[in-house]
């Protein structure tokens, strides 16, 4: 099911991207926490009352009121737009490269004329990306944890409360990997696949925003992936939301399988 040589090649091709992404995932919360610690807690609370900031945080965090303790603020580093963009890019970039990119660059002729089934090529190429899914949020959690030792915090962070967010974030990246595999398998051009995936991120964000300003759009907002990643809800509830988790994992599995079906049946044209 997995060809070791293809898996190793994929890992080798993307080792630097992964290293940079992990460094970013680790460094960003570290810096974020230091910036947060340099401000008075009252000041942060006041800032949260600014409508734009409040709305952005609630769109990304999934809860209107926010969680106005320091752990809640720290959790915002998991949904900061920069982190979301980096996570999204680190998943979609290699997936589009190993599936659509191989066809576009013509190296698929080399790969797909080896005595390896297309399904094995698909699994071997995407397996490495699935492994990245838990590493990125874990890196962020580690950045917060180590960062907390380097600054004087106004109140301690409850890192156990942040662990469900790590699991939820990993599930979201799992779903994105599945979707990226499907889009990439169905596309002929890498740029087009990347564009579609970026569009999905933007639409997800807009749907989350829409439901805040127009609550009647809630049924449509269920189509947004970000709808199932709500760190502030997890903090408020004090545990995992298994429904969100199941939705994300199912989405990842179903789209990945759909991608496999398409990839194993599609015509591979000359580059």
């Amino acid at each position: 099911m997995i060809n070791a040589a293809i898996f190793r090649k994929t890992a080798r091709d993307h080792r630097w991207h992964l290293a940079i992404a992990l460094l970013a995932a680790f460094t960003f919360p570290f810096v974020f926490l230091r910036a947060l610690a340099s401000m008075q807690l009252d000041m942060v609370v006041q800032m949260m009352k600014v409508p734009f900031v409040s709305q952005l945080v609630s769109i990304l965090g999934g809860l209107d009121s926010g969680v106005f303790n320091f752990t809640g603020f720290a959790a915002f580093s998991f949904v900061h737009p920069l982190i979301l963009a980096v996570s999204w890019a680190i998943i979609t970039m290699p997936i589009t490269r190993v599936l659509t990119g191989e066809i576009e660059n013509g190296t698929a002729d080399l790969l797909l004329t080896l005595p390896v089934s297309r399904f094995t090529v698909y699994t071997s190429s995407t397996a490495f990306i699935f492994l990245i899914c838990p590493l990125l949020p874990l890196g962020e959690w580690l950045g917060l944890w180590i960062g907390s030792y380097t600054v004087d915090l106004p109140e301690p962070i409850d890192f156990a409360v942040l662990l469900p967010i790590v699991v939820n974030a990993a599930a979201m990246l799992f779903a994105i990997t599945g979707i990226a595999s499907l889009v990439s398998a169905a596309s002929e051009r890498r740029g087009k696949a990347a564009g579609v995936l970026f569009g999905i991120l933007i639409v997800s964000f807009l749907l989350n925003w829409l439901v805040r300003v127009w609550p009647e759009s809630a049924p449509i907002a269920r189509l947004s992936i970000l709808r199932y990643f709500r760190p502030f809800v997890l903090i408020a509830d004090g545990g995992l939301d298994y429904s969100d988790l199941a939705t994300l994992l199912s989405l990842g599995i179903v789209t990945w399988i759909a991608g496999a079906v398409i990839f194993t049946r599609k015509d591979i044209h000359a580059a």
């Binding site: 013509g106 190296t107 002729d109 080399l110 004329t113 080896l114 005595p115 390896v116 000359a270 580059a271």
Partner: peptide, 13 residues
């Protein structure tokens, strides 16, 4: 493909 070797017209590596 176990018993086949192929050289494409435009070799991409």
């Amino acid at each position: 493909r176990k018993r086949l070797g192929y050289l494409p017209g435009d070799v991409r590596l």
